[in-house]
Design a protein around this nucleic acid. Structure first.
Lengths: 255, 255
DNA sequence: TGACGAACAAAAGTCAGACGTTTAGCGTCG
DNA sequence: CGACGCTAAACGTCTGACTTTTGTTCGTCA
């Protein structure tokens, strides 16, 4: 069961010890660790080695450090944004060799189609206002205003936030950021963004009406249309998870 | 627009520089970086600071180090397992305060229900053999053999692997590992595992038959049953994304 | 001639101590 | 009463040395 690198390094041992104390709850968010001077004694390592261990944990957003009198090393709990940022970097690298744009869109579809339905059920007035702002701006595309990915991205993020399930944004946002960076370089013209704006408007309408079935259906149509913009798609697979009728009317009955 | 910590630390600057070179492709996987001695000169920092920067990147699985003559620091590309492991730790911590078990199960449902359908379409003979092994073992539960979470877990992981979309395992595996660790402590008896085994057997049957609709439906039933085992579930929301009829017959037509 | 083994060299890992930088609190002085 | 500056604590950085690991080289011996 020992990994090939069973020869443990000191900074790894220290990092593992501290991490265990954090994930088991022995150390709780906000707790202040002993100073580096004290930790070097307890862990029986030099300060340089100890700092490498602390660096591992702060990279994982499990610790934060502050200088000065009130400073020290504190236990933190990673935010959803932290996790999303890490995922974005990782998925970007994975997409180089192990992930196709079709696979990325597949997961997006799995999340965002039912996600649009959840948004329709949970959206607050504030959610609707923020969503409307991105769609209004997009509607002015013909007037020469700036309508680009950032507006599109904001709409999808806001919609996921309206679901009140933070995990959905954590998973989906990195995916469509990567899709833009890697597969949408200068391939989209004004026509594309105009159509996107129209489809967003329709989704928003159903979300405002509190009609999950229609919202999901409109999101499915939207993502299916996106499919034509991206390359190298396994069409049949996308149909399999987002095909006509899956999210049909009457599913989201009153409750 | 500058973050509160705009006061850049040296090790962060160095880490950012190297990371940029990696994500932009200037440094490619397998490339060997200059030795620490050379890097200290180029980056104009001491060796300790440089090593902290390298530790950040190796924590993110962007670099690996090896001692000895043939050793050095090499550019790596994170594996799906690396990303899944990180996600597991992060989601575990997020689930303490920001995520309910209902929200976790919600995302699992979004991924695994259509995932079962994909598995039914993509599964190889080897996939079927491996899946059958976990179900056979589970079927012997009455004989006193060990049937526990690890068997259950293996079935779900293998099913996701059969979809041939690596992202699905990356996203879903951390979630149900966290669900076990945080919400399933000693709450499941032999009856529970026996029922799980039966439901797995049915899912596998449909996957073997290449019937995506039936496989998805069986997975939906399975996850809905799990719902009764876990606590604090928002029932209406789970119905909304996995309710009766959503993944009904006739959806996954021949293609 | 071939195989074994010891010495070597390169690179990461660890240690020790010192100095620099940031920050809150406190006290003094105008 | 307020502003300035001193001070102590803690993290951040630097220097230089020693330790451990590991592939290579080269010499000895069968």
């Amino acid at each position: 069961m020992s990994a090939p690198g069973s020869r443990r390094l000191e900074y790894e041992r220290v990092a593992d010890e501290l991490r265990t104390m954090i994930v088991t709850g022995e150390l709780r968010p906000g707790d202040r660790l002993p100073s580096e001077g004290e930790l070097t004694e307890r862990m029986a390592v030099s300060r340089g080695t100890l700092r490498e261990a602390l660096r591992v944990l702060s990279t994982q957003k499990l610790l934060t450090s502050a200088r000065g009198v009130g400073g020290g090393t504190f236990v933190a709990e990673p935010s959803t944004d932290d996790v999303a940022d890490y995922l974005q970097t990782s998925i970007s690298l994975l997409s180089r060799s192990r992930l196709s744009v079709g696979q990325l869109l597949q997961v997006r579809t799995m999340i965002e189609v039912p996600g649009a339905g959840l948004a329709a059920r949970h959206r607050s007035e504030a959610d609707l206002d923020r969503l409307a702002a991105t769609v209004v701006v997009a509607g002015d595309a013909a007037d020469g205003k700036e309508v680009d990915w950032s507006t599109n991205s904001r709409f999808h993020v806001l919609l996921l936030q309206a679901t009140e399930n933070p995990l959905l944004e954590v998973v989906a946002r990195p995916i469509f950021t990567v899709m833009r960076d890697r597969f949408l370089r200068d391939r989209a013209g004004a026509d594309f963004w105009r159509r996107v704006a129209d489809e967003h408007a329709e989704i928003l309408e159903h979300v405002r009406d509190g009609n999950p079935a229609a919202a999901s259906r409109a999101m499915r149509v939207h993502l299916t249309a996106l499919r034509d913009t991206y390359t190298r798609i396994d069409v049949s697979d996308l149909d399999a998870i987002a095909g006509d009728g899956i999210y049909g009317d009457g599913i989201y009955g009153d409750d």
